[in-house]
């Protein structure tokens, strides 16, 4: 309905962001001079090897962690600096790598949790909205009364995305949400996410180490260096929307992949040789 106006919110600007961890006095630089901009409604993918600081970046935007230098602006207002760490909130909802639906609540209870706890909707209104969104997002309304443990992991992930969207977030933060999935489920999830993003065009930050999925899904792909994490390269994806799997064989796609693959692999190799682990 008001997707056009909603899409104008959610511009994110990361400026010279730096993060130094200090485990036992040994300073570990996770992020350094990390700068990039995401336009409202844009789907941005951040690609990098394990331990490159991409999850750190997401945690800072989400409010789970604090910058040590630089700043992050949301819709032109500085909201995270070394002095201010915003608390986590419904304007920046995370969908987690391993899934974080509450197993003790039904699908519907999970999905209405945000709006009812924030008291922006009555239980009744939240229910109606939830059933509508679940139905639009691949007919999930039929599973509304079930518990997460009764659903496949793909279905759980789809419900978790709906739970996030219910809050009308300015930014949707996806932390490698399809990492543990097999190829077939992953392909189904990609198509699903593209459909959902067309339906609800929120700003998306999608963290992944998979370059192919990044290009296929995103408007812009940012390649991160291994630690200290910086943006090594930005790629504007020229594939038109709606996207289809046929595009994965197109010249344009292959050309883009060729351009950045060398960079991604170089960083992955560095990380591998240094034996990097995830920090956050």
């Amino acid at each position: 309905m008001s997707t056009a106006t909603e899409a104008r919110h959610g511009g994110l600007s990361v400026r010279r962001a730096g993060k130094i961890y200090d485990p036992g006095g040994a300073a570990v630089v996770a992020l350094e001079e990390c700068t990039f901009d995401v336009a409202p409604g844009e789907f941005a993918a951040i690609v990098g090897p394990s331990g490159c600081g991409k999850s750190t970046l997401l945690n800072i935007i989400a409010g789970f962690d604090r910058l040590t230098s630089g700043e992050v602006l949301l819709d032109d207002a500085p909201f995270a600096t070394s002095a201010i760490a915003p608390p986590p909130g419904p304007d920046r909802v995370v969908v987690f790598q391993n899934g974080a639906l509450f197993p003790w609540m039904s699908v519907l209870e999970n999905v209405i949790y945000g709006p009812t706890r924030q008291q922006v909707l009555t239980a009744h209104a939240a229910r109606d909205k939830a059933m509508d969104m679940l139905r639009r997002c691949g007919g999930l309304d039929t599973a509304a009364e079930r518990f997460p443990g009764q659903l496949s992991s793909g279905m759980q992930r789809r419900v978790e995305i709906v739970r996030a969207l219910m809050n009308e977030p300015r930014v949707l933060l996806l932390d490698e949400p399809f990492r543990a999935m097999d190829t077939v489920s992953k392909a189904a999830m990609h198509r699903h996410l593209l459909e959902v993003h067309a339906l609800y065009p929120k700003t998306v930050i999608f963290i992944t180490h998979d370059l192919e999925e990044a290009i296929y899904l995103a408007d812009t792909v940012y390649v991160m260096t291994t630690r200290p994490g910086r943006i090594k390269r930005a790629l504007r994806v020229s594939l038109e929307r709606p996207r289809s799997r046929d595009m994965l064989a197109s010249q344009a796609y292959l050309e883009m992949k060729r351009q950045v693959a060398a960079d991604v692999h170089e960083e992955a190799r560095k990380a591998f040789e240094r034996g990097e682990r995830e920090l956050a």
Binding site: A62, G63, F64, P87, P88, G89, P90, R92, V93, V94, F96, N98, G99, A100, L101, F102, W104, Y113, G114, R117, Q118, R163, A164, N167
Partner: peptide, 29 residues
């Protein structure tokens, strides 16, 4: 309790009280 459940609840706007009754107690049950 899975730390991500607590983080998720915070993202969704849970207060400390909500965390206790919606996540900590059912999670520890």
């Amino acid at each position: 309790i899975d730390a991500d459940h607590i983080r998720a609840a915070k993202c969704l706007g849970a207060t400390r009280r909500d965390l206790l009754f919606d996540v900590i107690i059912p999670g520890a049950l």
